[in-house]
Design a protein around this nucleic acid. Structure first.
Lengths: 227, 227
DNA sequence: CGCTCGGTTGACAACCGTCAAAGCGTGTGG
DNA sequence: CCACACGCTTTGACGGTTGTCAACCGAGCG
């Protein structure tokens, strides 16, 4: 018996295998408030997760008190796949009303044993997490605040526009995170992030509407911000 | 028919399922010289890989000419698991005589469809790659050259000693990579890496025998090198 | 109305990258 | 066997970028 046939009403017209199709039958969704924790560091890793809507940050707090954000989790992103025993990082919702789907790890693994298609799906989403982390390393590896912030904006434009309903229409992208989050993500100080954004705005590369909405004017200018 | 029964002479006494046990029947090993490429950027991703002995670097070259090392690959490490179509990074052997096992991706995937145990194995090694990249992000995220270099030394001590035959006996660890490699790994200049090592040596945290052999004297001193 | 939180801007010092030069080790060729 | 040359490493001097400290502004909220 194929699990995929048990799927309910997932738009029967298009039957391509999007990640999560089969897994979705196991999902238990929860809604989180702004700043609410989804799981804590050292929490037993009993579930895999996927962001349905909203945004979350995965982070750790160093011994010196500085918060290091490992990555941002946006709609469509799976996370928690690497943890075998306990989660190495904490995860918190960033925006009010973030919805996260949880999949019981053991049951998903057992199901995958009998359903090769699900097994491939899991490997696919895991590979996607690796790709995300590798991109992340490249961004962190850039030198200079302008390069980092530019790369961050390009990453967010890419991830936000491709996964959610065109939030990148004509009015730019809506960043779900604060300047502090961006700073802890890029390993910069808040002031430097603010200065970099101001600099990019003044040279006409981006446009800021309020503080959270960013419209990228010249993609080339951002890509060329090496150093 | 179970694939695991086709395995030849994999020490019949100990039958615990180490990662790669089942995969090993597909392996094709190759020996590489110092600096020799294992695959290039944009190369079709037809294989998964595993370092048997030696060491390798995975890297990309930025538009400004700077080389960014994404991670170091040591004995036991799998790599290339995330690539679905083409490899996003190039991989080169670091030391003379590095031996790498290659596993045909399609055949491994097909085998995994019929063998749940292999499927789990693949997910396990993929999860290990994620864990490695996350650790990597934490190291990159540290501020200050002393913190980065200290974290790098601790990571190498951990990875080198746990996987290879006790290379961390009484005489410290043997770094397979040059100062330039370390610099491109930590996003620092070679000079800063050298100065940081000198500084750690002078304050008695480490001991240097030649240039490649490092003995960690005070682990606490390295861990406390926050900023 | 006043508080707090998030964001921006300014001044200054510390750290790191760049340029430069010298030491060191290894391998190769005379 | 020695000498040289090349690559790798270290150290020094200097300038630029960024973190820190500080102040100010605006929005949201009790």
């Amino acid at each position: 018996m194929h699990v995929s046939s048990q799927l309910r009403h997932d738009q029967p017209t298009r039957h391509r295998h999007n990640p999560g199709d089969v897994l979705s039958s196991l999902a238990m969704t929860t809604r989180y408030g702004r700043g609410q924790e989804i799981y804590t560091q050292d929490h037993p890793a009993e579930h895999w997760y996927r962001v349905v809507s909203g945004a979350a940050r995965r982070f750790t707090v160093q011994v010196n008190g500085r918060r290091q954000i490992v990555d941002f989790l946006l709609p469509g992103d799976f996370f928690g796949l690497a943890s075998r025993n306990v989660h190495l990082f904490a995860v918190e919702a960033i925006v009010e009303g973030t919805v996260v789907a949880a999949y019981p790890r053991e049951r998903a693994e057992a199901l995958a044993d009998a359903n090769p298609h699900l097994g491939r799906e899991i490997r696919t989403v895991t590979a996607a997490e690796i790709a995300r982390l590798q991109t992340r390393i490249l961004i962190l590896g850039r030198i200079g605040s302008l390069g980092k912030v530019s790369a961050f904006l390009l990453e967010m434009a890419e991830r936000l526009s491709s996964r959610t309903q065109a939030s990148k229409t004509g009015e730019g992208i809506l960043l779900p995170m604060s300047r502090y989050d961006i700073a802890d993500y890029l390993t910069l100080s808040v002031e430097t992030v603010s200065r970099a954004l101001t600099s990019l705005k003044q040279r006409g590369a981006i446009k800021l509407v309020g503080t959270r909405r960013v419209k990228i004017i010249h993609y080339d200018a951002l890509e060329d911000s090496d150093e």
